[in-house]
Design a binder for these strands. Structure first.
Length: 737
DNA sequence: ACGGGTAATGC
DNA sequence: GCATTACC
């Protein structure tokens, strides 16, 4: 039987086991530390619905603590007791009951479970049964600004892993929603997929169902879709099933995709090419509907829903492994930040080790601390450069020096403690909570990497890496239950100490180190670099590895370089090519310049490319797509202190009631005119024939800076690129002799 | 709502 | 000089 959903009921939980619900008595509990005289009986005398009181010895941040485990009939009784006894130290009262049930019974989401004498337990972590996926996407009748109170749904498209593809389209909204509900229940999915469903499809559907007096009964128990209150947006849940908003995963995990629209992400993941699909703007959709051209709308919405389903197929395997690893439901895990995922795992492990789970709180970080060491590179071109780096440097430092929230001691001595270069002390004995866990995880990862039997093992190995690499940041985060800034400070300090030590040792051996960032060093190749790494490894509790070798590499500053690797591939870091806030034309040009310099060493050719690009802009041949600059909106529009170009553009568009595609990324162009740039920006999708692009802006502020970033190091000047001054340019490489 | 370090633009 | 963004 496959475990695929747990829901809460009064005093019990309902577990969906593939075919049916099973009910288990399960009651909430918390731990309380009693300091007052009179003891626990006195304290709890007036409290109602207590089922059990049990003394226990627990640990909290390394200290032994006597607590009582108090079990209540139901959540309500526990909450009221918690409020009344808020002067006391109460722990673990904020763990949701369903999560508690999962953890206490050591269940694994989507694992195979068995029942024995009323007990449930996981038999196999991975069930052989395929999950049934169901993706949907809604279209609405919207002219300008979307309004769920007014604009009806005109179509809902559906795609399932079983191969069903449908568009429910009608002028009768009630009929659409009813057909949708019955189609949904026919399919009886395990996982419901949307792209931005938490912000759009679900709230809209709920609102319209309410308007039409239809119950959105999608739950396995017949219950309606539920909106769980969240900070920025709600999480929509369905009893007995998981919901996944793929947009939230993409936002968190696909940093390399700059504009995260459904079509862009589908293209990036190789699911559907933009040129192969129907794309409609909101106003076009409106026009088509008005004219009754249904066919095109159907094609469009089916492409959207197929993209959603296929993106889901690509992203879900990793998400499922992650939720299994951290023992969290897919619905929750897929929406959590890295910090909370780490924490979910820690909470699970805490129970195993008799550690109390510290309360959740948010502290404004007490003070800033020093992070990784970044060396200022000499700018320009180098040849035959080898990169050495420490594998998982921070987790390994934490293991090596037993850095953990429970081993930190104020004013610890050298005999009993490891003292960091930042003068923080950590007990040498016993193994800290984090050391135990990190050791386990790294061992497991090594094992999986060695065997690597299946693609699932490969995924599992990757999720372990993601998790272990997040521990350092987690300790430094003010929102962490196990927040301990000293741990983060000490880890970073040992990191700086170690990398500087290695740089020094390299230089002693005549190896030229040209750049270093946190855990890596770039060296001009000299003899056998591997033997140097091995020598370091014999002296350090960490592992220095030879990662890659560049035939040529160009440095434009800290965290900004481009290199040609031995295998012929080009790596670019930090430069404008990698950034979403430069126009495509400039980025493309920089990429070509980099390629030309690194592969051919032909500065003159690169220069001519720039001149050509300038000509293209001058003659008006460059398209709007190539000139659009994307920037994020990071807060409410009114709370901006300065008039940013993209914010100003958005404000103007909103004032004019123009329809704008949902997105926190604003794509804009700069138009002709005088004064501030922010006064003459316009959202690309609202451009009309009358609008004149500011060619000078694009030449002066996009093309020239991006080109000079590279070419100024090869003797090229701005005047030369603009054709103002002819220079008899020698090829840079020959002048270098 | 994982960390700090860094460069860059535009007001 | 500061606010803002996006990168490593």
């Amino acid at each position: 039987m496959q475990l695929s959903g747990i829901d809460e009921e009064k005093g019990r939980v309902r577990v969906w086991l593939g075919k049916e619900y099973k009910l288990f008595d399960f009651h909430p509990y918390f731990y309380i530390h009693v300091q007052k005289e009179g003891g626990i009986e006195d304290l709890l005398r007036d409290q109602e619905n207590i089922l059990n009181i049990e003394p226990q010895r627990k640990r909290l941040f390394g200290k032994e603590l006597e607590v009582y485990k108090v079990t209540f009939e139901d959540q309500k009784s526990m909450n009221s007791c918690k409020r009344e006894l808020s002067d006391n130290e109460i722990f673990e009262e904020d763990i949701p009951l369903t999560r508690r049930f999962l953890v206490d019974n050591k269940l694994v989401p989507y694992g195979d479970v068995s029942l024995e004498k009323g007990e449930i337990r996981t038999e196999k972590e991975r069930s052989g049964r395929e999950l049934k996926l169901f993706a949907f996407d809604i279209e609405t009748h919207t002219r300008n600004i979307i309004d769920s109170k007014k604009d009806p749904i005109i179509a809902i498209s559906i795609a399932t892993s079983g191969g069903r593809k449908d568009v429910i389209i009608s002028k009768d909204e009630k009929e659409i929603i009813e057909k949708f509900v019955s189609a949904f229940n026919e399919e009886d999915p395990d996982v419901v997929l949307t792209y931005n469903g938490d912000s759009f499809d679900f709230p809209y559907l709920v609102e319209r169902a309410k308007k039409n007096k239809i119950s959105l009964a999608l739950g396995r128990d017949g219950s309606a879709v539920n909106a769980r209150r969240g900070g920025v947006r709600d999480t929509y849940t369905i009893a007995g099933r998981d919901t996944v908003d793929l947009y939230r995963i993409v936002e968190r995990d696909l940093q390399e995709v700059k504009v995260k629209t459904l079509d862009n992400v589908a293209e990036y993941l190789g699911v559907m090419r933009r040129e192969d699909r129907v794309l409609l703007e909101n106003d076009e959709l409106f026009e088509l509907w008005e004219k009754g051209e249904i066919k095109k709308i159907e094609e469009y919405t089916i492409d959207d829903v197929i993209s959603t389903l296929e993106i889901g197929k690509k992203l879900l395997p990793m998400q499922i492994e992650l939720c299994r690893l951290v023992k969290q439901f897919l619905t929750d895990c897929s929406r959590m930040g890295r910090g909370r995922q780490v924490e979910s795992y820690l909470m699970y492990k805490a129970a195993e080790r008799n550690e109390l789970i510290p309360p959740r709180r948010y502290v404004q970080s007490e003070h800033m601390y020093e992070g990784g060491y970044v060396m200022e590179p000499e700018r320009g071109l180098f040849e035959n450069v080898v990169v050495l780096d420490f594998a998982s440097m921070y987790p390994n430092i934490m293991i090596a020096y037993n850095i953990s929230p429970d081993t930190y001691v104020e004013g610890g001595d050298e005999e009993h403690c490891y003292i960091s270069p930042s003068k923080h002390a950590f007990l040498k004995q016993p193994d800290g909570f984090f050391r135990q866990i990190l050791k386990e995880l790294i061992e497991e990862r090594k094992r999986l990497k060695k065997s690597a039997k299946s693609s699932v093992d490969a995924l599992r190995q990757q999720t372990i890496k993601i998790l272990t690499n997040s521990f350092y940041g987690y300790t430094g985060w003010g929102g962490a239950r196990w927040h301990k800034l000293e741990c983060a400070e000490a880890t970073a300090a040992w990191g700086r100490y170690t990398i500087k030590k290695v740089i020094e040792e390299a230089r002693k051996r005549g190896i030229e180190v040209i750049y270093s960032d946190t855990d890596s060093l770039f060296c001009v190749e000299k003899g056998d670099m591997r033997s140097f790494a091995e020598e370091m490894n014999s002296q350090l509790p960490l592992e220095l590895e030879m990662r890659e070798r560049y035939k040529r590499i160009f440095f434009a500053g800290k965290k900004r370089y481009a290199g040609l690797q031995d295998d012929g591939s080009i790596v670019v870091r930090g430069l404008e090519v990698r950034r979403g806030d430069w126009c495509e034309l400039a980025k493309k040009l920089q990429e070509e310049v980099i390629n030309t310099i690194l592969r051919e060493g032909d500065v003159e050719k690169a220069r001519n490319m720039v001149i050509e690009a300038i000509d293209r802009v001058k003659s008006g041949k460059a398209g709007v797509e190539e000139l659009t600059i994307y920037k994020s909106i990071t807060r409410s529009i009114d709370s901006y202190e300065t008039a940013q170009a993209h914010v100003a553009a958005l404000k103007r568009a909103m004032d004019e009631q123009q329809d704008i595609e949902f997105s926190n990324k604003i794509g804009y162009v700069v138009l002709e005119g005088k004064g501030k740039i922010s006064d003459r920006t316009k959202i690309s999708s609202t451009l009309s024939d009358k609008d004149r692009i500011d060619k000078d802006y694009y030449i002066e502020n996009q093309i020239i800076p991006v080109a000079l970033r590279i070419l100024e190091h090869f003797g090229i000047t701005k005047e030369e690129l603009l054709g103002k001054k002819q220079q008899n340019l020698e090829k840079w490489f020959s002048s270098q002799g």
